[in-house]
């Protein structure tokens, strides 16, 4: 079971990953794992009196790493910190929704990038997988949905005074992430099913984790 309660001030990401995924140390090597300092810079952002535009974008960037569950936990912790900050009370729930959505968006972008790299690099029947129309169209379809999710999120971030609806982002973001992860596993073939591959790790977190 993954521990989603995170204290940002004390979080050591490597340690957190080790205790939550003890069987993945080999795969984690060479992956970008957010440093404690990065997380602390988020908290510093919260301390600033301006609206936290940058924070959203930082969270999205953080989301573009393989650790959806951890990053969501971090976003939740950011929301909790946000709640303590009185001057943002009126936009607080709005901001929380967008913070979690930022991480989801980043993760969707990460999976899409990995998926594209996979189908470009893998050759079958003498051509890269992506040269098959089914594969190409599946990717284009997912990318169009990703663009739509991104556009909705950006519009909401640009209009912080309006209510953002959590269900709305979840009913778009989660199915998109599921579909992306599922296709990633599918197009990665047998190798994607094996531990050590990003597709297996993504599927484990999102679908069966």
């Amino acid at each position: 079971m993954i521990n989603t309660s995170v204290d940002l001030m004390t979080l050591d990401v490597r340690h957190w990953l080790k205790s939550n995924w003890p069987d993945h140390p080999q795969w984690m090597q060479g992956k970008e794992i957010p440093e404690k300092a990065v997380l602390q810079s988020f908290i510093a952002e919260f301390a600033k009196p301006s609206i936290k535009d940058q924070l959203h974008h930082h969270l999205r960037a953080l989301g573009r790493t393989p650790f959806l569950q951890l990053n969501r936990a971090i976003a939740v912790a950011c929301c909790a910190a946000n709640a303590k900050s009185k001057e943002f009370v009126h936009i607080q729930s709005n901001q929380s929704v967008l913070m979690i959505a930022a991480v989801d968006l980043g993760f969707a972008e990460y999976v899409f990038t990995e998926l594209l790299a996979e189908v470009r690099q893998r050759q079958t029947f003498g051509v890269p997988l992506v040269r098959n129309q089914h594969v190409e169209f599946t990717l284009a379809e997912l990318q169009a949905k990703l663009f739509a999710f991104e556009a909705l999120w950006e519009l909401a971030v640009e209009n912080p005074e309006l209510p953002a609806n959590l269900e709305l982002f979840q009913s778009l973001g989660l199915p998109l992430i599921h579909k992306l992860v599922d296709q990633y596993l599918q197009f990665a073939g047998g190798r994607g099913y094996l531990k050590g591959h990003g597709a297996e790790f993504a599927f484990r977190q999102v679908v069966v984790g």
């Binding site: 663009f147 739509a148 556009a151 909705l152 950006e154 519009l155 269900e167 709305l168 982002f169 009913s171």
Partner: peptide
């Protein structure tokens, strides 16, 4: 209905972008 509303919001945002 909820899903379609969410898709409508996203589609609209994408077109505006």
């Amino acid at each position: 209905l909820q899903t379609l509303i969410a898709e409508w919001q996203a589609s609209r945002a994408l077109t505006y972008k």
